[in-house]
Nucleic acid binder design. Structure first.
Lengths: 112, 112
DNA sequence: TCTAAATTTCGATTACTATCGAACAATGGA
DNA sequence: TCCATTGTTCGATAGTAATCGAAATTTAGA
């Protein structure tokens, strides 16, 4: 049983969160997580190979954006909505709402 | 008279804005601009040398976060508050409010 | 025209990061 | 126990970026 590092709420840093979400692929991952309830890595539809997806989910986890719940060989992903809302009010919603309204999402999906 | 590139409002991309603001120095610069009305590069208090500051203001400008107004040898900086609010509602405020409430700002000032 | 002031550009260095494929690890089921 | 599934780690590569000091640029003023 492997221990996955998740920063405590107080350890979540703004610049790390923004950095994690400044990559279009990671924005897409976060957006997919918000849409589907607790997807696994395997069900997330992103235009990269699985090792790259793994790298991105790790970045999101270590920044404090996502929580990873291990069950068997699967990892269930969820956004740390409450922690982020308490620490940076309004931030996550404004980012994901903006992303979903933007062209960036569509361009990524087309590349796939 | 040099032309400085500023993206049109519609050309401002979310990932570029987040990337620009994911650097602590640039968060500090944006925070200083919001506080003081149209500061020049020379009056902004950041713990880097002037050529590095120039690099950062360029990044912020090209991402569409700041407007640079040239007057003589000085460049007056302002946030593109209205453009950003129209394109990404609530985003800039939530970022800068979070930054100013955080420890990250204090740590940067101490390093100076 | 010369000089000082404000800022940028350039060159170099160092460090990080996105990506892939291959190998590895862990789990659950046949 | 063997195998398929799920996901991570590793090694390599290529691109990007933060930083500094020195040199260049641009403008205002003496």
């Amino acid at each position: 049983m492997k221990m996955l590092y998740h920063p405590d709420r107080a350890e979540i840093h703004l610049s790390s969160v923004l950095n994690a979400l400044s990559d279009p692929i990671r924005l897409l991952i976060a957006s997919e997580i918000r849409k589907s309830y607790e997807p696994t890595c395997g069900t997330i539809d992103v235009p990269v190979v699985k090792s790259t997806l793994s790298h991105h989910t790790r970045t999101l986890r270590e920044a404090g954006v996502v929580n990873v719940r291990v069950q068997g060989t699967q990892r269930f992903l969820s956004l740390r909505t409450e922690d982020l809302e308490l620490r940076f009010p309004g931030l996550l919603s404004s980012i994901l709402d903006a992303f979903e309204a933007s062209d960036e999402k569509k361009e990524l999906m087309n590349a796939h």
